[in-house]
C-alpha cells in the first residue's frame, strides 16, 4: 500500500484547530471502511495515513466537530 508521507495533498484533510483527538476522539478512524485514517499521537490530531480513499464520507459526516474535509475529485462529483 502506498504511503502518503511524500504527498503534498491528500483528499481527506483535518482541521487541526477543530480536531479533538487529543480528548480521546477516534470517530473518523473508527468509521473509515478502508482504515486509512490514523491519529498522530505527537500532535493529537487525526490525519490521512494512506491515500486510498473511496470518498464514502462518513468521516466528514460523523466528525463531532466538523474538522474533517473530504475533497472529492471533480470527475466523481
Amino acid at each position: 500500500m502506498p504511503y502518503a508521507l511524500n504527498r503534498v495533498t491528500v483528499p481527506v484533510t483535518v482541521d487541526a484547530d477543530k480536531c479533538i483527538a487529543d480528548k480521546g476522539c477516534t470517530v473518523c478512524v473508527d468509521v473509515c471502511p478502508l482504515d486509512v485514517l490514523a491519529i498522530d499521537l505527537t500532535k493529537g490530531t487525526a490525519y490521512m495515513k494512506f491515500d486510498e480513499c473511496w470518498y464514502c464520507m462518513p468521516c466528514e459526516k460523523d466528525c463531532p466537530t466538523g474538522a474533517v474535509n473530504v475533497d472529492i475529485p471533480y470527475l466523481l462529483r
Binding site: I20, K23, G24, C25, V27, P64
Partner: peptide
C-alpha cells in the same frame, strides 16, 4: 471516569464511547 472530566470535550467523547 472520563464522563466527570473537567474538560467538556473529553466528556462529550466519553458519551460517544
Amino acid at each position: 471516569a472520563r464522563l466527570i472530566d473537567p474538560d467538556p470535550g473529553v466528556r462529550r467523547i466519553a458519551v460517544l464511547d
